[in-house]
Amino acid sequence: MDPLSCQPTRGRAAISNLTSRYERESRVRDDDGWGADGGLPAKLRTIVMADAARSIISRNDSPDVPFEISVNPYRGCEHGCVYCFARPSHAYLGLSPGLDFETQLFAKRDAAALLAKELRSRSYICKPLALGANTDPYQPIEREEGITRAVLEVCRTFNQPVSIITKSASVLRDLDLLATMAADGLAQVAISITSLDRDLARAMEPRACTPAKRLAAVRALSDAGVPVAVLTSPMIPALNDHEMEAILEAAAGAGAVSASYILLRLPLEIAALFEEWLRTHYPDRADRVLSLIRQSRDGALYRSDFGTRMKGTGAYADLLRSRFHLATKRLGLDRRRWDMDCSKFRVPDAPVRQLSLF
């Protein structure tokens, strides 16, 4: 039997449902000669399940990120970004980091209540909270679920500083909350703009909003007084890296106050998923892209060492770093801001519960 190559599924980035690292067996599509290859359907629908989380605040001590605590309302992400570093987390659920990550989602519907409970804890020390550090809090299912909105309302009640990381213009739905919080130094937003090329963005991030809408969101947030950072991430060698300066200029023109970037990371299953996507959509430059990545990762597709995993090493990585610093300095985007006001945090009175006589 001959293995069959998968074809792109409409509206999805991953080409296949790559078997996760925890499975003892792998699945390969093949043709047995009977004409029915058992391929994927032409369109995959999104399935949303409840996540029975018992806690909601995640903590980290990584020197590579500017926050220590975060909240993620969802597992999996319908935006389907092929490069997403969160994909391998789906393997913990017994699912594939491939198409399952984009189509089988989990919603933490008790997130707001859990957050309020944890903020009330006597052991809690107020620190800036990152909302959506793993998967996007404004992915399409948020329109129906409303979990992110509920979490923001809790943050407003406690005066808990919050920074949102998203690539969705749907963040503007909560502009009323964000503007009032930002006026007190309690909110900021980071918007990811990977490319200004609509076709490239559609291929990499099939269910995220267009680059033009993201820039419009930067402008609207900025006009409302919400500090906005732009993430030119990830930078992918020989694919979107030539756009770095153009993205930064567009972001500065839209009112962004700071910027950052990350060199493409390919941990665990993402390496195979990305290469599969790359050879399907851009076969003419796939070898060049992968070669430059290896040159920036000491000969491998990924190195996880703190301090270099975000930016890489070597001549190409150094050049990218220099370009970024020169551009951000010229545009006034070189001030990394994480200076929200934790002094205003307060625990409101608990709701009074009337005791029953019977």
Rank of each mutant, 00 (worst) to 15 (best):
E102C: 03
S304F: 00
D100P: 00
T148Y: 06
A246S: 14
P88E: 02
V189H: 04
R353M: 09
K213D: 12
C81M: 05
D287Y: 05
S222W: 06
N240T: 12
D341Q: 13
A246E: 13
K329S: 15
A13P: 07
L175Q: 10
V189Q: 02
A271Y: 00
S258W: 10
E269Y: 00
L93I: 00
M310R: 12
G307W: 05
L172F: 04
K43N: 11
D184C: 14
V154C: 06
P283E: 05
R285N: 03
I293W: 00
L18E: 02
L215F: 10
R309D: 05
L152V: 08
A315R: 11
L273G: 01
D37E: 11
G307Q: 07
T148A: 02
N159H: 15
A52Q: 13
H325L: 15
L175V: 13
S163L: 12
T194H: 06
L18S: 04
A116V: 02
L221S: 04
Y83A: 01
G314P: 03
F358K: 06
I164G: 02
Y74T: 08
Y302R: 06
R59P: 00
D241C: 13
G35Y: 08
R214W: 06
S170V: 05
G39E: 13
S62C: 11
K117R: 14
C84D: 03
L152M: 08
Y22S: 07
I147C: 05
P137N: 02
R279V: 08
S20A: 13
D30A: 14
A208S: 12
V28K: 03
R109A: 00
D305M: 05
A150F: 03
L268R: 09
R323G: 12
F324L: 03
A42N: 09
F274V: 05
C126Q: 10
